[in-house]
Amino acid sequence: MELLLPGLGLLVWTLLAFLIVFFLLKSFAWKPILSSLKERETGIADAIASADKVKAEMAALKNENEAMMAKAREERAVMIKEAKETADKMVSEAKDKAKSEYDRIVAEAQSAIMQQKNAALTDVKNQVGALVIEVAEKVLSRELSNKGDQENYIKQLAEGVKLN
């Protein structure tokens, strides 16, 4: 059974060849290939992981945006409402103020009028009094000789009185 008897030469050469090929391929082929494959696989895994992360971040951002938008809308509504209220309030306040001012001005005007009227009346009274006295003086001093003249004189005097 020669088939089962190993040839010494082939044994030695195979061993030698295997060892040489092993060390040659180990350092020049398998190491760079395996490290490249590993690098690529980790690269892909990292890329997928970061893509997922970015996706999650995007989703979070979108949710956040939506929440912010809703909040902004709510705030806007509130602000509009408030502004309206403020405006109404301002308008009514202004109205009230204007009315009170008007009332005050009217009251002041009336009191001023009254005051001046009173002053005028007093003045009139005083002047009338003085006039009467003056007229009476003049009448008394002229000696009433003529009745007709007298009356004309009085008329004249009376015309000379200016009620100012």
Binding site: V21, L24, L25, F28, A29, W30, K31, P32, I33
Partner: peptide
């Protein structure tokens, strides 16, 4: 084999 594999590497 060596030429092919080292070439690939």
């Amino acid at each position: 084999l060596c030429v092919l594999m080292i070439g690939v590497a």
